[in-house]
Design a protein around this nucleic acid. Sequence first.
DNA 1: GTTAGCACTCTCATCGGTAGAGTGCTAATC
DNA 2: GATTAGCACTCTACCGATGAGAGTGCTAAC
Lengths: 369, 369
Amino acid sequence: MVGERTTQGVQPVPLRPALELTERQRNVLRAVVEDYVFTAVPVGSKMLVDRHGLAVSPATVRSAMADLEAMGLLSHPHTSAGRVPSDLGYRIYVESLMREAALDQADQLMIRHQFSQVQLTSNEWLRLAASILAGSSGSASVVTPAKSRRARYGHVQLVELADTSRLCVLVLSDGNVVQRRLDRATLDRINPDGPTGQADLDIAAVTLNAELGGLSAPQVRRRLGRLGPLATHVAEVVAQLLEEGDGVVVEDVFTAGLANVLEQPEFAQGGKLRGILEVLQRSDFLEQLVPVMTRRGGVHVIIGHENTIDAMHEVSLVFAPYGAPDRALGLLGVLGPTRMPYPRAIPTVRYLAALMDELINSHYAETHD
Amino acid sequence: MVGERTTQGVQPVPLRPALELTERQRNVLRAVVEDYVFTAVPVGSKMLVDRHGLAVSPATVRSAMADLEAMGLLSHPHTSAGRVPSDLGYRIYVESLMREAALDQADQLMIRHQFSQVQLTSNEWLRLAASILAGSSGSASVVTPAKSRRARYGHVQLVELADTSRLCVLVLSDGNVVQRRLDRATLDRINPDGPTGQADLDIAAVTLNAELGGLSAPQVRRRLGRLGPLATHVAEVVAQLLEEGDGVVVEDVFTAGLANVLEQPEFAQGGKLRGILEVLQRSDFLEQLVPVMTRRGGVHVIIGHENTIDAMHEVSLVFAPYGAPDRALGLLGVLGPTRMPYPRAIPTVRYLAALMDELINSHYAETHD
DNA sequence: GTTAGCACTCTCATCGGTAGAGTGCTAATC
DNA sequence: GATTAGCACTCTACCGATGAGAGTGCTAAC
């Protein structure tokens, strides 16, 4: 029942060398976190024994709480209020106190079923993932498309649209599609005898696809000389497109369930949410997660002040990478108050990441067995 | 100075036959709206004469206000509070009282400059538009990609990815690109001798591009018989893709500036925003605007209860279509409290719609003159 | 080591009172 | 006849006091 593999070592955590807790302290901390996550109200000693069947008196719990507070795991809004977990308290909880259960069989089936209804090559897929994640975790969710950090040339298509525009559509080796319009003036310079037509474009495309398959941006650049003038120009554009994508993993972000976060009492007055919304819409906040995530897979939890972004000091992130290793990497996860139901959020994120791994791999590989 | 072309006839407005206002009533209504939009505080008679240099006494203003209230243009939060415009009051204001100025020359240049930095064929373009719109209007903004309601076949590309997946990339006549993975099992059935390779795919693509250019979904279906087995299968997929896009205009939505709305005092407590956020993320709320917008271009204003969606009863929309008539239609606009600075929002939306018209048309047509 | 008892602290909800803003009405004024 | 000054009235928002309740920390007894 209890998930053996917890989410340890989430990297930026300054765990003091020996933070040994007694069994009682562990129980109290666990109870405080779970009670507070549930009620959003600072929890006092009496409530705690009443609701969690601790076989000791409130006074004993008080002394344990005082110890935990001294260690920095709990804090006090004011003298005569109950205790609230600190970021560090949540950290300890997540790493060694939490009882993490796998996702319900029924939920799993339901989720799978929803995915089976939708085409993988469309953004609908990601929208669905975001929506499921938000619904199931009760937080805001974020999903980015799977994308290779070093995508290579896959296949190019040059199109003359009904009007006089010329489009270069590049399918990358990771399956993503990017496009760019070809500059008219340049085309006219290359082909001074008249407008560049579909026939010209087709010839260039054939050349390019034969010559450039599987190449990276610098490799494409090295080939520039050996192609015809039109093909060279397009190859230049292709190289640019490859370079623009290089190293960038997070481009588009699909979010859902913002309303869930809005509902939380800690964000009742809009002020606090404002910063978060702004960060969310920029999306570069995910960029910083990429190195950590690629270094080691699995679910990563970032709690409150562990986040380097100021506006995020009151929220927690539960994220995981998905995709094919070294080919395409996507990120997905949830964002909620630090007072987040981790035992629910973590398995949900884990399951969805695994599912999307699976889908993406079968999408690409689809072996015959 | 004063914009002659106001945004009249926004359709679902039950304007009573003869709503004649005296000059004074008009002035008072205008002053109330502008004061309230600025301060967000119900405005009383004394404040009004003080701040708006009305050459009459508060008592006179009071009587005018009472008249306006009887006509349903103002309302009273409670007995001894100031007046607040009703939705109808805003409507009258927008249609005939507002002094609408064109956008600043400097602003215009700045916006143009930002667009010049970005590729039209990427979503960055739309993201930028949303961001400009939000920043300039101080509200939340929404932008959808320009899309034809009846796009036709443009050009197809069939790609064998590095692994065993086969992709069909379809460029539509409106310049948009859609893709779909080809089903492996079907391919194997069509070509039982071995896996369908890039060579096979190329041949099929050439056939399809020669045969199907400019055709609509039913026309493509009618051609199905005359093509080879592989091409027929792909054409089937193409027809599906065309059909899925038919009639749908709003698919992806780019929003920005949600935080701006959050900041407004009327949404200080999250509850009200919740519904709006949910509607925004669904995006089907725009679908209902499409018929109105295509029937007649220009800026459309929908105030509070004029909106058929319940969750939107406390917000106003200022929207305009853009794109090439009968080819590709996109929607853009802003969403804010009914207490919106219409004289700023409307010209901004108008300008941006015109600019995007222009960009899109030069993108597609780019005539030689 | 645990617990009961107790004094103490702090918040929060309640309540009455008051200041202030605004109204509607009436009678005087231009 | 329209406008305005004056006035009584109403309602809210704010303030300060009060008391209940929850929770703590400490000490002494178990």
